[in-house]
């Protein structure tokens, strides 16, 4: 081995060592003696990025149904809708799925106040959403200890939230088409089916009424899809749709979207 190489390595190491020692001093200063900075506390508005005019933006909001819980492929109805849309148009499609499992309407109201969520909504051409399932069923709780008064209470809150969500979306983005996907009755085959079905129907009717107050918000029914063979379309938790169930919803939503020449 060349003697000089050893000297060079030793020298380089020495310099590097000095450098790391300096860095350590910097670390101690930066981490232990740094006061809070005031400049960061203010909210920074993100810069709007140039939107690709060609690209279609889909934004999905809501709960586990939009997330696709129960579909082993993980696609959910959003995925199947997307598959169908890709056949209909050659434009590139971007999907942002902001749905959170177990989300209730109150949480959705908070979620769409977030800066980034609003930015996504502003770019959206289509918005898909499901909400209310958790408000109504609370994981089956509300139907097991059935109480009319409690359901009415939940409904009141829910409708107010739904209206607020629709209003916010319309204020942010007046042109996007919003598909509000209604509820089905997963307990169709159980003892008190008559009662639960009536509640779900009323719930859907009231939601559709809220949707009708705003332009371009479409209430898409799913109640009929699951009415006859509910067990064939439910996942093993007897609550969420399975792959076939999601396909049905996806086909229905996709059939509502057409790309005529020029516009959408």
């Amino acid at each position: 081995m060349n003697m000089n190489a050893v000297k060079i390595i030793a020298l380089v190491s020495l310099i590097a060592g000095g450098c790391w020692l300096f860095g350590l001093g910097l670390t101690v200063y930066d981490q232990f003696f740094h006061g809070p900075t005031a400049s960061l506390s203010k909210e920074i508005k993100p810069k709007e990025t140039a939107v690709n005019e060609q690209q279609l933006h889909l934004v999905a909001l809501g709960d586990s149904l939009t997330r696709g819980t129960g579909d082993e492929t993980g696609k959910g109805y959003v995925g199947y809708t997307l598959d169908a849309l890709r056949k209909k148009t050659k434009r590139p499609i971007q999907v942002t799925n902001l749905a959170i499992k177990g989300q209730q309407s109150t949480q959705l109201v908070t979620q769409i106040q977030k800066v980034e969520v609003q930015r996504q909504l502003r770019q959206a051409d289509f918005v898909f959403m499901t909400i209310g399932g958790n408000d109504l069923f609370q994981g089956g709780e509300a139907l097991r200890n059935f109480s009319r008064a409690r359901i009415d209470e939940a409904k009141k809150v829910y409708l107010k939230n739904l209206d607020s969500v629709f209003r916010t979306i319309r204020a942010i983005n007046p042109r996007a088409v919003v598909f509000y996907i209604g509820l089905y009755n997963p307990f169709n085959q159980l003892n008190n089916a008559k009662m639960t079905s009536a509640i779900v129907r009323e719930w859907n009717y009231a939601s559709a009424e809220v949707a009708a107050r705003y332009p371009n918000i479409i209430a898409v029914p799913t109640y009929d899809l699951f009415e006859l063979h509910v067990n064939d379309y439910l996942y093993s938790d007897q609550f969420h749709p399975n792959k076939e169930g999601y396909k049905l919803i996806g086909e229905r939503v996709a059939s509502l979207i057409s790309f005529s020449k020029g516009g959408k």
């Binding site: 990025t49 690209q55 971007q94 749905a99």
Partner: peptide, 14 residues
């Protein structure tokens, strides 16, 4: 379908 980091980060958060 995008290289926009904000969308990616938002998706990670979700």
């Amino acid at each position: 379908g995008t290289s926009d980091w904000r969308t990616q980060l938002q998706q990670q958060i979700i």
